[in-house]
Amino acid sequence: MPQISINTKRERFKLIFFISTLLLAFIGLAAMPRVSIPLLLGYVIFLIVYPAVPTLEKLGINRVGSIWIVFSALIFFSIYPFVKVVPTVTAEIENVQYFLPKIEKYVTKKYEELRIEVREKTSFEIGDKYFFQALDWIRKTSTNILLNIPKILASLLEWIFFIPLIIFFLLKDGKKFKRGILKLTPNSIFERFYFLSHQFNKKLGDYIFAKFVEASIVGITITSGLLILNVRFALLFGLIAAITNIIPYVGPVIGFIPGLLFSLAEYGPGTTLGAVIMLFVVANAIDIAIVFPILVSKVVDLHPLTVVVSVILGSQWLGMVGMIISIPFAAALKLIAQEVYKEIYQE
């Protein structure tokens, strides 16, 4: 009678080789952010546009043709924002530096008033050491950001050439890459690995698509609201709110601060400020009450604590990009952990 036994030595060797290859790939990506960040971005955009390929194929266009159509559409629709939005945003950012002293002056004045008031009422002198330190830090960081804009634009230029290349080859050869990895997968974990990676990819795709839609809704709401209120830098504040919205919990608050500070300094505590606050509250209420439950929460079911911890760890690892990718990454880890748990505790 045949005995059930794993061909241990060879299989174990294959397993070790496979896992170490995967680990090396991850370590390599983590160690080279200049390559891995555009790679990740390219992959994210690929996941957003990929569902269009089978749809076109169903219409009778062959695979290469539909890839070219999707790719050309992507290039076409991303050139317009680049040509139109980037100069506007750059001009707005450059204008911001003229408004920064104004905001600073306003904050200092308010602080001085508060100090005098406190001294008169309680005869207690508030030290201004920390205040000026904080102000100094803010001034330095914002100047730093402004001075770094050319550098960011330079890397953006690098990305403009690199990312479309990645997307194109992912569309064209993505299947071959997948096949290559699957060929390397040892028999003993093949079914599980294939199914898990497929599930994870699907989850990631859904999550990114949901987040993309959510951020667009928030960004458009805030930009159009600010335009109606006739607040300056409407496009810039809308863009900031959209991008920071991707970060859970803290994102909407971070996105709110620049707009709040600016309108406080520019228009003072009045109806405009109230309207701006209302606008941000309403936009986030729409997001939290309608968009999030419908789109995002179904995709990832992580404990809020897990979300916060992974965002903090992500920000430490890769900065802004880390904060954005931390949630799908945590979801992947959870998927793997669940599988390992089942494996250990079922028997």
Partner: peptide
């Protein structure tokens, strides 16, 4: 997929 003699599918 190729399997060795006695390998579990």
């Amino acid at each position: 997929r190729k399997f060795q003699p006695g390998e579990v599918i």
